[in-house]
Amino acid sequence: MSDPNTADCDSNLHASYYADGMQQVETELVENEQIAQSTYRLRVAAPTIAARAVPGQFVMIRLAGVNAPLIGRALAIYDIVNNDQGDPTWVDLVYLQKGAFTTPCSQSPVGTPVSLWGPLGNGFDPRPCDRLIMAVGGIGQTPMLLLGREANGAQAFGRPNGWAKDVELIYGARNEGLLAGVDDFRQAGFDVQLCTDDGSAGQQALVPAILEQRLQEIGDTASVRVVTCGPEIMMEKVAECCQKHHVDCQVSMETPMACGIGICFSCVAKVKQADGNWDYKRTCVEGPIFDAGKIDWS
């Protein structure tokens, strides 16, 4: 996707370039429905984006032609749906209604013009493993449907698929009502384990605790991989747990973005460098997926 000589986030230099396959598309909502408490799934026809995306990438989206909200919002690509000919055609995004974009978007009827550009970011690595555990919280489940389907071989994205024998989702939310898309994950064939803060669904526990329990049960974790997305504190605890068990872990960072394509330098996270120091890296082009050990959580 990018020049390996210049785009390594170990480098003290900023990645030179990443948004290589990006397409800007002016289109409209073809679906926009509530799927859980305060949670919506929208669909747009964007074949040029759908055909290029890999799991873990995102798009920037905005309501077209308005100056408020002005700036695009970064949303993980939740699903890519093919047309009758089998060509990737529609892009689905799942979002939590809470702010200046998501609130009006949630009230927007089918046909509302939207502008989007993507696919953006690096995506998860398709590193082979026996068991892929996706540990997510809040609205962090959104990049995992495609990743899990790629891992179990159900869907392909122009790179190797079927690279995990088993795919497991540990999904936590504040309460049952906020759990969104659980049926999608079950239908995709993943082992789904739910947890909630109030015990209204699944175990009354936090995601890192469930993960700890699972890794202990598995015992030999040599061929386990963990990926995580959700609140930063949760990802930090997941990363700690993986480090303790010597498990490979990738995190999907969410930092406030303005452009999504590496030109504004807003979305920086502290990333550890080979020399032991940290540097601010743009999560939009040098991420959003990072090896957990690279993140300086302080």
Partner: peptide, 19 residues
């Protein structure tokens, strides 16, 4: 290295930055 986040905030019709 630039400033600590947050580095940008959207405002009505505008963007506030401190990169």
């Amino acid at each position: 290295v630039g400033n600590a986040p947050w580095r940008t905030v959207e405002t009505t019709g505008g963007l506030l930055n401190a990169i």
